[in-house]
């Protein structure tokens, strides 16, 4: 089997290699890819959409329909993980764990044991692996807000520099996951529950799709943001720019939420028994 796979790969690689001489050279300015459609994008992006970043304009406007479904692919992935992994019957865990805040000692309380729920000295923690490292804990707490701020910058600045909803969303989601790893799942879901992440995930895609559908209702075509120019202060070109910003925000929200949603289901093996 292994040998068969190797042979298949060699044949496939050989085939790909055999045609490389027919393809244009790397960076060839006269290749079809740089002479057919690309010049249009480079020459017209600014006057069509008033967005200086050509890549963003292609992604979110010229080929915005592809991007709508790329976002939907990410949402589907989150939904698929939830559908396959989540074990909805909520059983009470065998034992609960509490940390004594001042000493860092961990208490394990079996079923039926007395619980120091009211005490401010104790904090309930995950029954799975829980590191209690003050240095990691505090460093990550310090880093997280800056990472999130940077994520918002990447989303908002996608018009002018590399970035946009996908990249910003991933950074934002990673910040939340970093918090979950360095602290614990319980305290993360207290801030962003599984339900909220699911709702935000679909909400983000709804923002994108809703913008596209709104354009139909305003008399332009699906995803034709120039239809948004009926709002005061916008002309058809700047309306496209704002349309791109709105859908990028939608993408950012969807990607953030779905990443966190997938992490919750993977990290708790679908049980989410900490009462998430």
């Amino acid at each position: 089997m292994k040998r068969l796979g190797l042979i298949a790969i060699i044949i496939f690689g050989g085939l790909l290699f055999s045609i490389t001489f027919e393809l244009p050279d790397l960076g060839d300015a006269s290749s079809p890819a740089s002479t057919h459609v690309s010049p249009y994008y480079i020459e017209h992006t600014l006057e069509d959409t008033s967005v200086p970043n050509v890549v963003t304009a292609i992604l979110a406007d010229y080929r915005g329909y592809d991007t709508l479904f790329e976002t939907a692919v990410i949402f589907s992935a989150g939904l698929a993980c939830f559908f396959l992994l989540r074990i909805p019957e909520r059983k009470a865990p065998k034992a609960r764990f509490y940390r004594h805040l001042t000493t860092g000692l961990t208490l394990r309380i079996e079923k039926g044991g007395r619980i120091p729920e009211e005490s401010k000295e104790f904090e309930r923690i995950d029954s799975a692996w829980v590191p209690n490292d003050v240095i990691i804990n505090m460093t990550c707490r310090l880093v997280v807000p800056f990472v999130q701020l940077f994520a918002l910058y990447v989303i908002a600045h996608g018009h002018h520099s590399p970035g946009g909803g996908f990249q910003g969303g991933v950074i934002f989601g990673a910040a939340i996951i970093l918090f979950a790893i360095s602290n614990n799942l319980r305290s993360t879901t207290r801030r962003l529950s599984e339900k909220s992440s699911a709702l935000l995930g679909s909400g983000g895609v709804i923002i994108y799709l809703g913008t596209g559908l709104l354009c139909i209702l305003l008399g332009a075509g699906f995803l034709n943001y120039s239809g948004l120019s009926v709002f005061p202060g916008l002309d058809p070109v700047s309306a496209r720019s704002y349309g791109i910003l709105i859908v990028e925000i939608g993408v950012g929200i969807a990607v953030t939420a779905v990443m966190v949603w997938i992490y919750y289901n993977l990290a708790s093996a679908g049980t989410q028994e900490e009462g998430l």
């Binding site: 939907a72 949402f75 939904l79 339900k195 699911a198 709702l199 995930g201 679909s202 909400g203 895609v205 709804i206 799709l209 596209g212 559908l213 139909i216 008399g219 075509g221 699906f222």
Partner: peptide
């Protein structure tokens, strides 16, 4: 009357929208 020209978009947009709304409503 003007809606019929958008029929192709409706065929993909409506089930996608429904999928998203179902996810929200279900909670």
């Amino acid at each position: 009357g003007g809606m019929t020209e958008h029929l192709p978009a409706i065929i993909v947009a409506v089930p996608l929208l429904a999928a998203l709304i179902v996810t929200v409503v279900w909670w």
